[in-house]
């Protein structure tokens, strides 16, 4: 099990949604991610660039389309971040 670890790069709401979507698949086409999350091309490009720079996202161009996928470090970082979110949420449940 991945140890909880808060990740600043992933935590931004749109980036967390991008990662959550890509974690559920091997890869997804740029327009599918954009439409599924209801964001614009430029917003997706901007956040994809941040994730790519962090080494969490892989972009592959094929036949005039761009495919996005999470890298192994990206999956590990997301798993750690989600574990941390669950820990925080569970802690509040214990206190309440």
């Amino acid at each position: 099990m991945t140890p909880p670890a808060f990740d600043e790069t992933i935590h931004a709401p749109i980036r967390l949604q991008i990662c959550a979507m890509l974690a559920a698949v091997e890869s997804a086409e740029f327009s599918v991610v954009r439409d599924s999350l209801g964001i614009s091309d430029s917003v997706l490009s901007k956040h994809a660039k941040v994730l790519q720079t962090a080494g969490y996202l892989h972009l592959a161009k094929a036949h005039r389309t761009t495919w996005l996928s999470l890298t192994a470090p990206g999956r590990a970082a997301l798993a750690g971040h989600l574990a941390e979110l669950r820990r925080i949420a569970a802690q509040a449940g214990l206190q309440g």
Binding site: P13, L16, Q17, A20, L82, L85, A89, A92
Partner: peptide, 8 residues
């Protein structure tokens, strides 16, 4: 944290 998890 809960809202973020629900979003996921």
């Amino acid at each position: 944290a809960r809202i973020a998890l629900e979003g996921v």
